[in-house]
Nucleic acid binder design. Structure first.
Length: 430
RNA sequence: GGAGGGGUGACCGAGCGGCCGAAGGUGCGGCACUGGAAAUGCCGUGCACGGGCGAACCCUGUGCCGUGGGUUCAAAUCCCACCCCCUCCGCCA
């Protein structure tokens, strides 16, 4: 949620900053409505003050046993007028809120210019892609030939873009998730949470999923009640909703949370895109990272969050690169963000495996997450950050493709040994 | 699913439609007392939004007693709807 006060104070700055993101003309409309709103608030407040004074006088008169019929009659009109004003105010508020909700966050001044992911800037890379003595094959071929990745049966019982993982591959998936969680909780200072995977519409609204991404969500209904619940598209949703409407002590910041959860996405409008294998699925697992910090802490916390996610890949010895997203590729709420892309031998390029974003106070304002310093004083909105640490399905892809052997088997990364109960290699199921 | 009870400030808990932003207690902060502490005493102790010069302190207006409506000159208090919690019974991983 954009800060209307900033918009009031420096409209030109905001217009200029949003030129690339296409939100500039909104500024003037919002300012006009905001002006109207404040005038109305003032008028209504004045009338209410008058009403309160008059009510007090009426009360006193009644206590003295005097007749206050005339005053009461006069006050009735004031009450009616207040009711009208409050009604108008509600309309104005809705309109204003709707408009403000359309204003995207301001990009951090350091964000590189650009219009699409083609303009993203590589900031570093790690690892050297392995030399294969053969032509490396895509993960879906490896998985299916090993009899461990089963897409046809999944499509039969559900629909396309669902998967079944057999035996050791399922175990690999579980091992990866546990490895990531242990890393983040034991070494990176995150607290693990287990959360609802279905949430109500209001939570979806306030986490920015609705109404914009309604067609990307799976929706459920309790059988005999009308209530709608949505399957989460990422644990970011319940994780960032955790402290909505709370004021946190500044000393408790930054807070670092992680959660492992399945993610459900309809992926409407992406048919024909990424249809091979399990790169883009309706259901996948992810270890999510969320931070709540002061705005001053947020920049450093973004850097450490990216490093936390990179550490997963370094431990797994998977080559990757980090790109900073350009202005045009930043999400609506993001002020600054990085993508981590892992090496895909079968494709001969890097593909996305994590995305880390700093929402700044924009995120805190939307969820009304505040903090107050020990010294007291006014509360301020927290900055929120989130990132994947990592998407498990895509990590499986990277392991299969980078660790494949000429005979079609797949060696397991040494870092996973404690989680695999002796499994060192994926081989064909008999 | 059936029957009943309840949601008030950080916590417990009172509250006849006006004198209630809300008694009392606990907690917390300060001061006094003490060699120091405990105990005790005194004082203080909500949030949001707007205005006063959007620096601070401060002053001031409005709103907030689960949420949203309604009745009324006036609602924590009356009415309606919804949400949540608790107890008992039933069912159940």
């Amino acid at each position: 949620m954009f800060d209307v006060r900033l918009l009031r104070a420096e409209p030109e700055t905001v217009e200029r900053a949003l030129a690339d993101k296409g939100g500039a003309e909104l500024v003037r409309r919002v300012l006009a409505i905001d002006e109207r709103r404040r005038a109305r608030v003032r008028e209504a407040d004045d009338l209410k003050a008058q009403r309160n004074r008059a009510s007090e006088l009426i009360a006193q008169a009644k206590r003295r046993g005097e007749d206050a019929a005339a005053d009461i009659a006069r006050q009735r009109e004031v009450g009616d007028r207040i009711k009208v004003l409050d009604g108008e105010l509600r309309t104005i508020d809705d309109e204003l809120e709707g408009l403000v909700a359309e204003i995207p966050n301001l990009p951090h001044p350091s964000v590189p210019p650009g219009t699409s992911d083609a303009d993203n800037v590589e900031v570093r890379s790690w690892g050297t892609p392995r030399e294969f003595g053969f032509v490396p094959r895509p993960h879906e071929e490896l998985g299916e030939e090993l009899g461990l990745l089963d897409l046809p049966r999944a499509a039969r019982m559900a629909k396309a873009r669902f998967a079944i993982m057999w035996g050791p591959l399922a175990r690999l998936s579980r091992a990866l998730a546990q490895f990531m969680l242990d890393l983040h909780t034991r070494e990176h200072g995150y607290t693990e949470l287990w959360l609802p995977q279905l949430v109500n519409g209001e939570t979806m609204l306030r986490t920015g999923q609705l109404p914009k991404f309604e067609e990307q969500l799976f929706k459920t209904q309790e059988a005999d009640e009308g209530r709608t619940l949505y399957l989460i598209p990422t644990a970011e949703v319940p994780l960032s909703a955790l402290h909505f409407d709370e004021t946190l002590p500044e000393a408790s910041l930054p807070r670092r949370y992680t959660a492992y959860s399945p993610c459900y996405r309809r992926e409407a409008g992406t048919y024909g895109k990424d249809m091979k294998g399990i790169y883009r699925q309706h259901q996948f697992d992810k270890v999510e990272l969320v931070k709540i910090a002061t705005p001053e802490q947020a920049d450093a916390e973004l850097e450490s969050m990216v490093d936390n996610a990179e550490t997963v890949l370094r431990r797994l010895e998977l080559p990757y690169r980090v790109v900073e997203r350009c202005v045009g590729d930043l999400g609506f709420s993001t002020t600054r963000g990085y993508d981590i892309e892992v090496w895909r031998p079968a494709l001969g390029k890097y593909t996305e495996i994590s995305s880390c974003s700093n929402y700044g106070a924009f995120g805190g304002r939307r969820g009304k997450i505040r903090y107050r310093s020990a010294a007291g004083g006014r509360s301020e909105f927290c900055a929120t950050l989130n990132g994947s640490g990592l998407a498990v399905g895509r990590t499986i892809i990277a392991v299969l493709e980078n660790y494949q052997e000429a005979d079609g088997t797949v060696t397991m990364p040494p870092a996973l040994a404690p989680y695999l109960n002796g499994l060192e290699r994926l081989t064909a199921e008999r």
